[in-house]
Write a protein that binds this DNA or RNA. Sequence first.
DNA 1: GTCGCTTGTAATCATCCGATTACCTATTGT
DNA 2: ACAATAGGTAATCGGATGATTACAAGCGAC
Lengths: 203, 203
Amino acid sequence: MSSDERRELVLDAATTVFGEAGYHGASTDAVARAAGVSQPYVVRMFGTKQQLFLDVLGRALDQLMEAFRAAIAGDQEVPLPRRLGLAYFELTGNRGILLCLMHAFSLGAEPVIGPAARCGFMDVYRLLRDEGGMSADEASAFLAGGMLSNVILGVRMLDDYDEDPAVRELLVTVFPEKLEIIRATHPPRQPAAGSRAGASGSR
Amino acid sequence: MSSDERRELVLDAATTVFGEAGYHGASTDAVARAAGVSQPYVVRMFGTKQQLFLDVLGRALDQLMEAFRAAIAGDQEVPLPRRLGLAYFELTGNRGILLCLMHAFSLGAEPVIGPAARCGFMDVYRLLRDEGGMSADEASAFLAGGMLSNVILGVRMLDDYDEDPAVRELLVTVFPEKLEIIRATHPPRQPAAGSRAGASGSR
DNA sequence: GTCGCTTGTAATCATCCGATTACCTATTGT
DNA sequence: ACAATAGGTAATCGGATGATTACAAGCGAC
């Protein structure tokens, strides 16, 4: 397999792993195992874990912005916020992208990740303002909704869908349509705990 | 000094340290140093680092909810969202509280922190709905704004206030008043880099 | 065929970190 | 006086982890 293919493979794996555990919580070994390669290979490909994270972050931002650009260029009949919302929904299919962004956004104090995260955030803001033609208020409101959605994905609120009516109400409000598709895309990781009768019994 | 006083002191320090570096990025030793005690003492007081984080998280949620409750009970002349916004602004004075929440919200996959974070998030949502009398849409919109604010604090966007007009525009939009106070409360950590004339010059 | 490059791994190193143990020092109750 | 208890630390241990080194297999050029 060519190096570039492996590289993409590793970046995909790293996006997932960093998305789940965060920058500090993820190990290069976990990334390597997820990608099916050895740990030294991962660090040699990217130099350092930090550089790997920066590459993951950059790629996530690229994917996000490309999706938004396509939405902006899309069917002008449908209102822009809705087009962007649908683009966001598609991104939702790969939790890793959005969760890595959230982790990066929480690490502003990191000496090199912090500035990169700020720069990436502003790139998105500028995209909405300049290419999307949104006002500052519109862009902020859209970003606010996106941040709430990201947090809901990050905290795995979908895992509690069956546990609590208030969770359902919140999710229906935040994802007014497509919730069922998102639910299907993001299956609970612990077996829903509410499912009675010792499913595959612990112990 | 009594054990309870030390405990609060350590919890304060831990809130700051966890807020800066996140759960995995912070060490019990960093917390201990910030609190002025020894590392073994910190872990003996809380059992494990995880339990310490859970206690920090619980206390942060308590402080958040107490502030919101006070806002709800406040001057009924002024609209509720504004009262809550002012309460949020006060919380902003201690970055650690809000940043710890954000870190927790990004760790939904953690087996014990995740559920605690979900529960805490829903407690806040229910507070807004039930005690605040907000609709689901109103509560979601308020939370969305809060999440964007938290991200902006977490990514330390205020550090770039002087670097980029777009940053100023965004900050003015998200913190339409009190921005100057928040700026004063959250001084940049790297010396603003924009200050001309080779300040302590790189290289 | 063999040189040299690319793609990869096994083994190992050095460090950090959470946790444990053992010990120290006041104060307090009797 | 002197246990007993609370508050606290130094020393250390064991595991995890990022990084480095050395090595090996495939393969195209000449």
